[in-house]
Design a protein around this nucleic acid. Structure first.
Lengths: 206, 206
DNA sequence: TCACTTTTTAACAAATTTGTTAAAAATTTT
DNA sequence: AAAATTTTTAACAAATTTGTTAAAAAGTGA
């Protein structure tokens, strides 16, 4: 039952729709239609809409963290690392442009509920792993005076901020340009370069 | 009628609720209850839920842009400017922590509808004004070799990214710490410093 | 005060949403 | 093939949501 093909179809449909429109704007009937079945099946397989959403959400987060973590190889020089990490972010977001919306939505809307249920949206072991890798990566670079002192959380948030925000800004950017894909791709390619440059220079010691 | 006290109450109630929960999760009945009246009044004053939302949204955006623009005085030295601008962002977001959620939500969900209706969410004159001020601000600094070449849009997005993302990360950060206000304030104060530093150094010429 | 206008509500309608249930259909086991 | 089990659906129910409308209530000017 856990591996049922219909169950998988429902998960995919749900992921697609939740990512586009968010939890509240997608009905179980929508999802069932997309998966080609009756909406009662959602309750059969997942109990209710919320539990289905939770499953989709946690899996997506896990996916992201795993993908990003694979880009962190401790041995390489720091600026090669930050560049690669920014590339990883940009590629991930190019493939899933609505990810920021999806995550921020859940983070904001269900913050209290999650806290009450003691369900953390993040997979702590993976997050800790990411954190520790970054910590090891920058520690020696700081000691050697290659970069200024900085905490892992700040480096991670700085990189996430400049990259994610480039994608968040896309709809606003569209208001200003004639709407063609080329110009958008150019914009994102520019932003990618700028992000790398900003982080590289922003880390330099004085 | 445009200045009716009830109309104002409805606008405030709508703003409060939409900011907390987003368009889809707030019903007209919720808003009316919050404003202490019958939900038919919403249709009387605003036509429908969407038009009410649009009014709330546009006003909020206008507010933000105006606030931020007041921080841009062309004559002051560039790094004083960036610091002040980051402060402005942090203060704004401290007062309205759900603003990123609110705006990203609308940007993402209604992108197509807005485009179709040719309703831009941004007030173009104000945005252009901001853009031009920044342009003037950095142009001479670049010529004088005080900062590296950078486009206004990149500077604006870099600053917005590192600041806004600090607030977006708050709910996730909460999952890791014992939940007390002091530690959160400390986190945000740290992020404010880090943002200023990153932008300062990230702009330096090599 | 009285006619007139504006504001507000109660009652209703249509559509949608989540969830249940009993039974049909399909699949597996014996 | 018959029995047992699993998967799927149709039909239904309760709650909610947006919006309409007719009339009540409040306010205004003559």
């Amino acid at each position: 039952m856990k591996n049922s093909i219909r169950r998988q179809k429902l998960l995919h449909a749900a992921e697609r729709l939740f990512l586009c429109r968010g939890f509240a704007s997608v009905s179980t009937t929508d999802i069932a239609r997309e998966a080609g079945c009756n909406h009662a099946l959602i309750h059969y397989y997942f109990g209710n809409k919320e539990d289905l959403f939770r499953e989709v959400f946690l899996e997506k987060i896990r996916q992201i963290l795993t993908t990003l973590m694979n880009y962190l190889e401790i041995e390489r020089p720091i600026f090669e690392q930050t560049d690669k990490f920014i590339d990883a972010y940009f590629d991930l977001l190019t493939a899933n442009p609505n990810l920021p919306f999806f995550i921020i939505n859940e983070l904001t809307l269900n913050a209290e509920r999650r806290r009450y249920l003691r369900v953390n949206f993040v997979d702590k072991p993976i997050t800790r792993e990411v954190y520790q890798r970054v910590d090891m990566m920058i520690k020696k670079e700081i000691e050697q005076g290659n970069i200024r002192p900085i905490e892992p959380k700040d480096l991670l948030l700085d990189i996430a901020g400049v990259t994610v925000f480039s994608f968040i800004a896309v709809p606003a950017y569209r208001d200003f340009i004639t709407d063609d894909a080329d110009s958008l791709n150019l914009f994102l390619a520019d932003r990618r370069q700028e992000a790398k440059l900003l982080i590289r220079r922003g880390l330099l010691p004085l």
